[in-house]
Computed example of a mutant assay.
Amino acid sequence: MIKKNFVLLILLLMVGKLHAQSKTIDLWKGQVPGAIIYSSYQQSVDSADNWVKMRFVTDPTLVMYQAPAEKANGTAVIICPGGGYWGLAVSHEGEQVAQWLNSLGVTAFVLNYRLPNDSIMVDKSIAPLQDGQEAIRTVRRRATEWGIDPYKIGIMGFSAGGHLASSVSTHYNEEVYDLVDNTSARPDFSLLIYPVISMDEHITHAGSKSNLLGENPSPEQVNRFSNELQVSSDTPPAFLVHSMDDGAVPVQNSIGYALALEKHQVRSELHIYQSGGHGYGMGRSKNTESSWPEACSKWLESSGFLSVESEIIKSVSEYQK
Rank of each mutant, 00 (worst) to 15 (best):
A135D: 04
I120K: 01
D118P: 00
G105Y: 09
Y113R: 00
T107H: 03
P128G: 05
Q130W: 06
K124Q: 13
S103R: 09
F109C: 03
Y113F: 14
P128D: 06
V110H: 01
A143L: 10
A98S: 13
Y113G: 03
I126Q: 11
P128T: 08
N112Q: 15
R141D: 13
L101T: 00
A98P: 10
I126V: 15
Q99G: 00
Y113V: 05
V110M: 07
R140L: 12
V110C: 02
P128R: 06
V106R: 00
I136W: 05
A143K: 03
A135H: 02
N117Q: 06
K124F: 08
S119I: 00
K124G: 01
F109H: 03
W100R: 14
D118T: 14
T107I: 08
R141Q: 13
M121K: 02
I136F: 07
D123S: 13
T107S: 06
A143I: 09
G105C: 11
T107K: 01
A127P: 03
S125V: 08
K124S: 09
L104W: 12
R114V: 02
L101P: 00
A98E: 08
I136S: 05
A135E: 04
A108G: 12
P116C: 06
L111H: 09
E134T: 09
L101N: 01
Q96A: 14
Q99F: 12
R141N: 13
A108F: 05
N102P: 10
V106C: 07
Q130L: 08
V110D: 02
Y113W: 06
S103P: 01
V110P: 01
D131A: 06
G105N: 08
F109S: 03
T107P: 02
R140T: 10
R114P: 01
E134P: 00
Q96S: 12
L129Y: 01
I126F: 03
F109W: 07
T138G: 10
